[in-house]
Simulated scan of single mutants.
Amino acid sequence: MKVAITGIYPESEERIRGGVEAATLRLSQGLARRGDIDVHVVICNAGRAPGITNPEPNLTLHSIGGSKRFGNMLLSIPDRRRIAAYLRKLKPEVVHAHSLDRFALGAIESRLPTVVTIHGIIEMESALETEVSQKVRGAMRNRLVHAALRKARNVILLSPYVAEHYARDLRRANTWTIENPVADSFFAIDEPEERNTVLHAGLLIPRKGIGNLLQAARIARAEVSDIKIRFAGGATIPDYKEEIDRTVSELGLQENVAFLGNLSPAELALEYGKCELMVMVSKQETLPVAIAECMAAGKPVIASPVGGIPYIVRENETGYLVPHGEPEHLAEKIVSLLSNRRLREKMGAAAKAYARERFTMESVCDRTVAVYREIAK
């Protein structure tokens, strides 16, 4: 079966920026390695040189260029036309578009059988932005989202939360719930743990609740003096990173906190191995790939009960759910896990078992191919 995947795609496996790039990469690789799917990834990015490459058998990358300016203001019409025309020339049996934007609209407008995966809820995320430019960009992107929702007839949802949020928009669409895949390597991590180490994996942006975690670390330090909070992820807003640095200094956490920046998958896997637990108390999430990866590594997770998180982080089973803005409550749960190895191991084992059931590349690819075959009839 010939399948085209269109969406953002990393230029290198060692430089993956965010969950959507990780998802398109892992899904493309997993499908190609089955042997019965001929995968063609169509990449529309102005900053990437045009060309065709074959990184591995059954996987072809098509970089087709893209518009350099005013894309969102023009509803990405030039890029949509570029994507649609290329797909018609490629003639796949199915197109799988990732995210409700120019990729989804270009795929749908190619008039080929198309399924769209919704990776995030833009209006929820942009509402939490602190910079005016980001809010404006979010508003323009939201126009693309609703244009795509009106046209989409086959949609993959990462969790029931997305179905609930877009219930009215998806009334006429066929829907399936399939999570993003986690690379097999994350299930095989055996790095020795470092005592009292807590990991936060994700961008350093306001909606991630970084200040809340730092406040909790200060409180937890009264009982765990050598607690270590390691942040794996880059800072995209310089002013916000400066604010975080000031908070670390004001709370006297310089010896307890480390900012690691953007990591390669191999480096991130080492951090999952080192940590005793992961914390992500965001104000808004859809279904973070980082949580799925950490569960695959067999670690308990403390996260906020927002978006799709409660569907995978099960209270008292695979971790704890702590609302954003409750640093005392968060500190209590962090201390309870750091001080109880048996409980950590029990929750970590449950997390890994759930991850094996839902997040392996084989499981996700099998369910995704079933969707392809259904819509290609």
Results as ranks from 00 to 15, higher is better:
Ile227Asn: 00
Arg230His: 01
Leu214Ile: 09
Pro206Gly: 03
Thr236Glu: 13
Ala201Glu: 07
Ile227Thr: 04
Pro238Phe: 12
Leu214Ala: 03
Ala222Leu: 13
Ile210Gly: 06
Ile210Asp: 03
Arg230Leu: 00
Ala222Asn: 14
Ile237Val: 14
Phe231Cys: 05
Ala220Met: 12
Leu199Asn: 00
Ala201Arg: 01
Val224Cys: 09
Arg221Met: 15
Arg221Tyr: 05
Ala216Asn: 06
Gln215Leu: 08
Pro238Asn: 12
Thr236His: 12
Val224Lys: 07
Pro206Asn: 09
Ile229Trp: 00
Ala222Pro: 04
Pro238Gln: 12
Arg221Gln: 15
Asp239Thr: 11
Leu214Gly: 06
Ile227Gln: 03
Ser225Ile: 11
Leu204Ile: 13
Gly202Met: 04
Ala222Ile: 07
Arg207Asn: 09
His200Phe: 14
Asp226Arg: 05
Arg207Val: 05
Glu223Tyr: 10
Arg221Asp: 07
Pro238Lys: 13
Asp226Gln: 11
Asn212Gly: 07
Thr236Tyr: 13
Ile237Lys: 11
Pro206Glu: 06
Leu213Cys: 11
Ile210Ala: 08
Asn212Leu: 04
Val224Leu: 11
Gly202Glu: 02
Lys208Trp: 02
Ala232Arg: 00
Ile210Val: 15
Thr236Trp: 11
Lys228Ile: 00
Gln215Tyr: 13
Ile210His: 10
Gly211Ile: 04
Ala232Asn: 04
Ala217Gln: 02
Gly209His: 07
Lys208Val: 02
Leu213Glu: 06
Ile205Phe: 06
Leu199His: 00
Ile227Ala: 03
Asn212Phe: 03
Leu214Pro: 05
Arg230Gln: 01
Pro238Ile: 08
Arg218Gly: 01
Gly209Thr: 09
Ala220Ile: 09
Ala201Pro: 02
